[in-house]
């Protein structure tokens, strides 16, 4: 009988998990080949880069806040009520995932060229080639994900707890704010941080709506694209590292906060 090396399910799956780390980690480490510290220092301290970082952080934060503001009631309705059009709303949440961000941005741009879009631009807020356009592009991209994540969180809060709260005299609104929302706080925080991180790295829709104007609409991902387009590899590497560091810091913060919330 041949001696066979037993390959357990544990071995196979752990290997796959480590491969994921190797792929992403390897790609990040490979940036070191083109890393030049003087260029990194110069890039990080340049007014243009600092503007891009600030624009990205502010834009992603505003977009994530707006998305959460709309996603919370929408997700609650999808989780708790049966209403006409519910299935369609539930399906459309995946729309930003199946349509590429570039196509999503193109749809927005086309909208602002139709009579209604033009009216919105002339009588309300100008979106094309502006900060508001960046926020809108990011908002549209992350809204579906934020709603989906929040719906899952609300689904996990037993409806019975709201019923008990109401039997104790709470109105539906009071029961929502005093029972459901506090119990969904982990999901709320996770949805905000993931939406924020996705908005921070958003490129396709933003470039379509806001363009690539330096010191005006140049977010970090757009700045990376612009540097690469001008064959400035070292500058591109420096900006990528800024984006990676910001993103990883946000995700670490989220894991820490989620841990705190879970034990609160």
């Amino acid at each position: 009988m041949k001696n066979r090396i037993p390959i357990s399910l544990r071995h196979t799956t752990v290997l796959a998990a480590l491969l994921v780390l190797t792929l992403y980690g390897g790609l990040i480490l490979s940036l070191g080949w083109f890393l030049e510290l003087p260029t990194l220092r110069e890039t990080l301290t340049s007014a243009r880069t600092l503007f891009s970082i600030q624009l990205s952080l502010v834009g992603a934060t505003v977009a994530a806040c707006l998305a959460i503001l709309l996603a919370v009631p929408a997700a609650y309705a999808l989780s708790r009520y049966r209403f006409r059009g519910r299935e369609m709303v539930d399906t459309i949440l995946e729309f930003p995932i199946i349509v590429s961000p570039a196509a999503l941005g193109a749809i927005l741009l086309i909208f602002f060229n139709n009579p209604l879009g033009e009216w919105v631009q002339s009588h309300g807020v100008r979106f094309v080639f502006t900060f508001a356009g960046i926020v809108l592009a990011q908002f549209i991209t992350i809204l579906g994900v934020a709603t989906r994540l929040l719906k899952t969180s609300f689904d996990e809060v037993p409806l019975e707890l709201e019923t008990v709260a109401r039997s104790l005299g709470a109105t539906p609104r009071h029961a929502f704010f005093s029972v459901t929302l506090p119990l969904a706080r982990r999901g709320l925080l996770a949805a905000f941080i993931l939406s924020w991180a996705k908005a921070l790295g958003e490129f396709g829709a933003t470039i379509m709506v806001a363009g690539t104007m330096a010191m005006r609409t140049e977010t970090l991902p757009i700045a990376i694209y612009m540097r690469l387009a001008s064959a400035d590899i070292e500058g591109t590497v420096a900006l990528i590292l800024v984006l990676v560091a910001t993103g990883l810091a946000a995700l670490s913060l989220s894991r820490w906060l989620l841990g705190k919330v879970a034990h609160a």
């Binding site: 707890l161 008990v164 039997s167 119990l183």
Partner: peptide
């Protein structure tokens, strides 16, 4: 006053 099967104490 309502006491359900799972009691429904608010965990938070």
């Amino acid at each position: 006053g309502y006491l359900p099967q799972q009691i429904g104490l608010f965990p938070h």
